[in-house]
């Protein structure tokens, strides 16, 4: 039994270096947030960053702004992505290959999505007249464009195995459109939409590339704010930057845990049915 356990444990050795590096990176962040290891000289110690960020307005503003952008992007992506998946479901087989264009945003790098939004919102762009795009609008559009197809991908995967005759039966038995949706479709598409939503939220909350290209500087997304404070200020500013990074990490961990809870519950759900 115990040799079996040793064998299972040793199977994880190939991934150990990666996990250790990441853990060390986070550890380094925590240490610098406490004011130590800012310079190579061992004697140099700065005040910890937590007191600074708790009393500063920029930190709360950036944190709330990031959460808000992430929430709006997630809500729009989930709704749009689900609607798209429902549209795809009804398409006849021979038209489906053309609809595969919905996967384009999945292939394109974030910096290209950023470019598309800049060109689209720019002077002479298709959307130029629609909005004199402030940073938030551009940023949310980019996130939604990228993430909606991700939601579609996950939701459509379960919809494909959904038997449409159930809807017909429900209609024959007198169910209205809302009732059919609520009791037949929602239980099927809800779980993948929820897990996709958590992933989209995490991504829009903490990614760097898109706000770097599109974002406003005030208020800034947390990732950008931290990056700028870390690199473009004096060394004494570093503990505060790292302290906000630790807070960001804790928030993210919360959502990662939520994701795995959802996935686990879904797994058990299918097993019992």
């Amino acid at each position: 039994m115990s040799s079996q356990r040793v064998r299972t444990a040793s199977a994880f050795l190939p991934l150990l270096p990666f996990v250790l590096f990441i853990a060390a990176g986070i550890g380094y962040t925590v240490i610098q947030s406490m004011g130590a290891w800012i310079t190579v000289r061992p004697g140099d110690v700065y005040p910890a960053g937590y007191g600074v960020i708790l009393q500063s307005a920029w930190f709360y503003r950036s944190l709330l702004y990031s959460l808000w952008i992430a929430a709006v992007s997630t809500a729009l992506s989930v709704v749009l992505g689900t609607v798209l998946a429902l549209l795809l479901r009804g398409l006849p087989q021979q038209l489906y290959p053309f609809a595969l264009v919905y996967k384009i945003p999945l292939i394109l790098p974030h910096v290209v999505i950023g470019l598309i939004v800049l060109v689209g919102f720019g002077r002479g762009g298709v959307l130029g007249r629609l909005a004199a795009a402030p940073g938030s609008t551009a940023l949310i559009s980019a996130y939604v464009f990228k993430s909606a197809s991700f939601v579609t991908l996950l939701v459509y995967a379960v919809l494909r195995s959904f038997d449409a005759r159930q809807l017909e039966t429900a209609r024959m038995l007198g169910a209205g459109a809302w009732q059919s949706f609520r009791h037949l479709l929602l239980p099927v598409i809800g779980p993948p939409a929820a897990t996709a939503g958590v992933i989209v939220f995490l991504f829009s909350f903490g990614a760097f590339d898109l706000p770097f290209l599109l974002g406003a500087s005030r208020p800034a997304m947390l990732a950008i704010d931290i990056y700028n404070r870390y690199w473009y200020r004096d060394l004494p500013a570093r503990p505060a930057a790292m302290a906000s990074l630790v807070v960001m990490f804790l928030f993210s961990t919360l959502f990662v845990a939520l994701y795995f809870r959802l996935v686990r519950r879904q797994k058990h759900g299918t097993r019992h049915v």
Binding site: F21, I22, A24, G25, I26, G27, Y28, T29, Q32, I199, L202, F203, F205, G206, A207, F208, A223, I226, Y227, Y230, M242, L245, M248, F249, S252, T253, F255, V256, Y259
Partner: peptide, 12 residues
């Protein structure tokens, strides 16, 4: 899933 910046600056 974790935003990469949360560990990347330390890893750097």
């Amino acid at each position: 899933l974790l935003p990469s910046i949360t560990f990347a600056i330390g890893v750097h």
